[in-house]
Nucleic acid binder design. Structure first.
Length: 586
RNA sequence: GUCCCAGUAGCUCAGUAGGAUAGAGCGUCUCCCUCCUAAGGAGAAAGUCGGGGGUUCGAAUCCUCUCUGGGACGCCA
């Protein structure tokens, strides 16, 4: 509907420009918006006020000229000039009534568009290190990223969903070593577990698998393992030095093959768990991209060589630095450490080059807000290599801070004290969790009150929206049970009978849906959709309380039933995009 | 110290590519089930949009200064 008005105003502007009323160069796409107050009609534009200055005319006069140039349309009931020069458009009720059969015909496709023109967009999200189960912080990125991806797809982008698997690097070595030490404990060895090791129960589980499958084939005495290892932090040492020494010891004592086996066992077990967890959360990927593959394919070295060739690298204190300050970063960054190992940043450069080489028109990274300092250096690297950094958009998701009993819940993967996404899902359900997560703008800090989320109270807006859907289903259930006749052809219904104000506001809300999808998708703001659904549900519940649908007047009954059928379709479409179920019964 | 985010009703938050009288939910206070699910609805009270300047026909929205809170600033990943 909005688009149609836009086209009308655009045509009028062209006509005025052709007649020399306004300068051609001042003409731009008119801004049409929904009015807040129904007294102002359905849509309004401030175009006349915007053009008043370049046209050297009084805004109201210009508005009048614009109205006279407006092509005729059966969409419009009337157009008025109001206030300082607004033009208000009031649509005919038939325009709204026509919406019902349109929605029912389009069904699940109602609201979708081809705005994105099939452009290829990659959305990378979650990408948590596979060193432990996902926790509730990852959950927000998962819900947000997947809804953004779905929204973009709904407005016509070709979307590729990707998880970057950090399957190389020191954290993974720490995990492998932690598993092995727990395994030794299962072999009745007595040892002091390192302060910096992974202490979660899942580490015990993986160690138990190793013990069950291989008995004591991986056993070494605790004395041998800790021989010559510098002190841990509680004993006055450095925990980082301590754990690094233990990693080296594990590699030496186990040998390459056996160490690799433990490492892979840990990686695969946890990755499987993450895959399973996300899939049960309604989050699915097109690709799981391995960090290690970048090293193995030589992509990391190639990226470093390219930087070297473009003269952006220098050596200092034994390390190799990238001069990111040339591109606005605060300080230069290391790509190869003094011990010869490439940094995580080096892999990330290679990864982002690879993303652009794969031909995406746009690349979206969903990161935790703690990574914000990381953006300039990645963009700097892309720029240094002649890529277009504006193709990369990084969306930062603020942490969800958990509260339990009014107290902040401390989280740390390493210590094993965290609330997993899996636990949250089991407690509050995937529907409520997803809805909650995307209810807030991503850059907004979020207080996630576990007690509130756990209590299945009616405070939870997801129930409110789902209830609207279930209620409509229930009406049709009743109609069937009472053998009430229902005209099955939406085109054979007399919608002119819908003249209650409740019906009008419900129709207005239904008409807004495509507009909401568009702005929610283009601004990467899923919360707009959750708010919209709440309003739509509110319109329906109000209507439900004010009027009865299963009435004797067959003509009116059919009109009303089709209206709520269309409403159900839109509620269902919206919930579906959020990855939330639309139950037929509650 | 530098950077990022936030500050709107008692609480949690929408609204910000400038638009008409700033909106919801929760909480509080009144009402509504012989009626398609009361997990609902109707109504009321509640605001110096952190503060000061500026830009203009018009500012919660843009600029500037300032106050307050949260976070980030490794040859970690």
């Amino acid at each position: 509907m909005k688009k149609q008005i836009e086209q009308l105003v655009w045509a009028a502007l062209q006509r005025l420009a052709a007649n020399g009323v306004i300068p051609q160069e001042a003409v731009s796409a008119p801004k049409i918006e929904r009015t807040r107050d129904p007294k102002h009609g359905d849509f309004a534009t401030n175009t006349a006020m915007m053009l008043a200055k370049p046209a050297r005319k009084n805004p109201r006069e210009l508005a009048q000229a614009l109205l006279e140039a407006l092509p005729a349309s059966d969409l419009l009931e009337r157009c008025d000039i109001a206030g300082p020069g607004f033009i208000n458009f009031t649509l005919t009720t038939t325009a709204y009534h026509r919406l019902i059969p349109t929605i029912l015909a389009k069904s699940h496709a109602y609201g979708r568009s081809d705005l994105g023109d099939g452009k290829r967009v990659q959305v990378e999200f979650v990408s948590a290190n596979p060193t432990g189960p996902l926790h509730v912080g990852h959950g927000r990125g998962a819900a947000y990223g997947s809804v953004v991806a779905d929204l973009l797809e709904a407005v016509g982008f070709n979307v590729h969903r990707e998880y970057y698997v950090n399957d190389a690097g020191r954290q993974m070595d720490i995990l492998a070593t932690s598993i092995w030490l727990r395994y030794l404990e299962l072999c009745d060895e007595t040892l002091t577990f390192p302060a910096n090791g992974y202490k979660g129960d899942y580490v015990w589980d993986i160690a138990a698998t190793l013990h069950r499958d291989h008995g004591e084939a991986y056993k070494q005495s605790a004395e041998a393992v800790f021989d010559g290892i510098p002190a841990d932090e509680p004993d006055g040492g450095d925990k980082e030095v301590h754990i690094d020494a233990l990693i080296n010891q594990a590699k030496r004592l186990l040998g390459d093959n056996r160490y690799r086996y433990v490492f892979e066992l840990g990686l695969n077990t946890i990755l499987d768990d993450i895959r399973d967890d996300l899939s049960l959360f309604g989050v699915n990927y097109d690709e799981w991209y391995s960090e290690r593959s970048l090293t193995e394919s030589g992509a990391v070295n190639k990226a470093i060589e390219r930087l070297r060739a473009s003269n952006r690298l220098y050596e200092k204190e034994g390390a190799l630095w990238f001069r990111s300050t040339d591109f606005g970063d605060e300080k230069d960054r290391v790509v190869v450490r003094d011990n010869g190992q490439t940094t995580y940043f080096a892999s990330d450069i290679a990864y982002h080059i690879d993303k652009l080489e794969r031909g995406f028109d746009r690349v979206i990274d969903v990161w935790g807000a703690d990574h914000h300092g990381y953006i300039p250096r990645v963009k700097a690297a892309l720029q240094a290599l002649g890529d277009d950094p504006s193709k990369l958009d990084v969306l930062l998701v603020q942490f969800a801070i958990l509260y339990r009993g009014g107290e902040k819940v401390q989280m740390s993967t390493r210590s094993g004290r965290f609330v997993t996404l899996r636990a949250l899902r089991k407690e509050v359900g995937a529907d409520a969790a997803r809805f909650f997560y995307v209810m807030r703008k991503c850059e907004q800090h979020m207080d996630f009150d576990l007690d509130l989320a756990k209590s299945e109270s009616n405070d939870n807006p997801v129930y409110y929206v789902q209830y609207a859907h279930a209620r409509i289903c229930s009406v049709f259930q009743q109609a069937a049970e009472q053998r009430i006749l229902f005209e099955s052809d939406p085109k054979a219904v007399n919608y002119a009978r819908l003249n209650e104000s409740h019906e009008q506001s419900l129709l207005t809300s239904l008409a807004k849906y495509p507009e909401i999808l568009e702005t929610a998708a283009l601004n990467e703001e899923p919360h707009q959709l959750t708010h919209y659904l709440r309003e739509l549900a509110n319109d329906f519940h109000t209507y439900y309380n004010a009027h009865k649908f299963l009435i004797d007047d067959a003509e009116l009954r059919n009109a009303r039933l089709h209206l709520i059928l269309a409403t159900r379709q839109v509620v269902r479409n919206g919930l579906n995009l959020l990855g939330v179920s639309a139950p037929g019964k509650m």
